[in-house]
Simulated scan of single mutants.
Amino acid sequence: MTALLEVSGVSVSFDGFRAINNLSFSIGAAELRAIIGPNGAGKTTFMDIITGKTRPDSGSVTWGERAISLLNLSEAAIARIGIGRKFQRPTVFEDQTVAENLILALKSPRNPFAALAFVLTGEGRARVAALAAQVGLGAHLARKAGELSHGQKQWLEIAMLLAQEPRLLLIDEPAAGMTLAEREQTTAMLVGIARTRAVVVVEHDMEFVRRLNCRVTVLHEGAVLAEGSLDHVTRNPAVIEVYLGRG
């Protein structure tokens, strides 16, 4: 199976510190992957490289069936070809309703007021409703985003990413600050999304990763330390030593 994203032999240093060290990684077009590792393992820099925020010193990052080099593209161009990123803290328009947030994401307009008027009376209405339902916010379209719980804001931002029709989602610590019920719903949501597109989840919560029931990549000192099921990697002596701790 051809990989959707292929990272090969990538390294990058900052002021003499090697943040990413000969890292190779690949993910398929409809795959859920969890990335774990201690602080400083290179998880954020890894995502920065994929999204064009950081340029590596060496290696290659290719995308899609035509193996397009992402290293030649701007951050905006990388987003346009289908890579969406969600940071840990949700960034939504709190004074706008859930529906308005989704409409703005759907159209990416220069004039938001004109775009709102257009989509609310056009065919975008059904798409907005479907996106909200997909993330469990179907009954909250008229609520202001600022009134939502932390977990609901996370879901809204995921829906805003989905509005752009990405082929790959990079999601940073989605379970942080969520209630148990929200975490369970987030698990089901991400598993469902990964049936039709690639999803990479960076997460510290091992129980959340276990519920995802997916392939796990362990990073350490900017390189892949282990890869496989969660049970497989957590039995690896090197992972136990550097991440899980002795005993």
Rank of each mutant, 00 (worst) to 15 (best):
A34D: 03
A76Q: 11
T179G: 05
P174M: 09
S74Y: 05
G228K: 12
F17Y: 12
A145F: 11
A79R: 10
I240K: 10
A132M: 12
F17C: 10
R167I: 03
P112A: 06
G151V: 08
G16A: 15
L106E: 02
G122K: 12
G247Y: 08
G37L: 04
Y243F: 04
A105T: 02
S229M: 04
M47Q: 09
H204G: 10
V239W: 07
G82K: 00
V10F: 15
A181N: 05
C214T: 03
R125Q: 06
K144E: 10
W63G: 01
E31T: 06
R110W: 05
A142L: 11
L102M: 08
Q96A: 09
I36T: 02
Q164E: 08
G42C: 07
Q154P: 11
K86E: 03
L230I: 01
V128I: 11
A41M: 07
A115K: 01
G40R: 00
G138R: 08
R183K: 15
N21T: 04
L141C: 09
A130W: 10
A139P: 02
N22C: 04
R246L: 07
G42L: 06
I27Q: 02
T97A: 11
F93A: 09
A176F: 10
A117G: 09
K107N: 03
P90F: 05
I103M: 11
T217C: 15
L190F: 01
E147S: 14
V191R: 14
S26G: 08
S74R: 13
F25I: 02
A34V: 05
E207R: 14
L168P: 01
D231R: 13
E227S: 14
I78A: 10
H204N: 08
V209F: 15
V92K: 00
N236D: 11
T179Y: 05
K43I: 02
L104T: 04
R167G: 05
D57S: 12
L32E: 00
G245L: 06
E207W: 11
R197D: 05
E94R: 14
R55L: 13
V12Q: 01
L161I: 03
M178P: 08
E227Q: 14
K53D: 04
R215I: 03
E182D: 12
A226F: 03
I103P: 00
A198Y: 00
H140Q: 09
N22A: 09
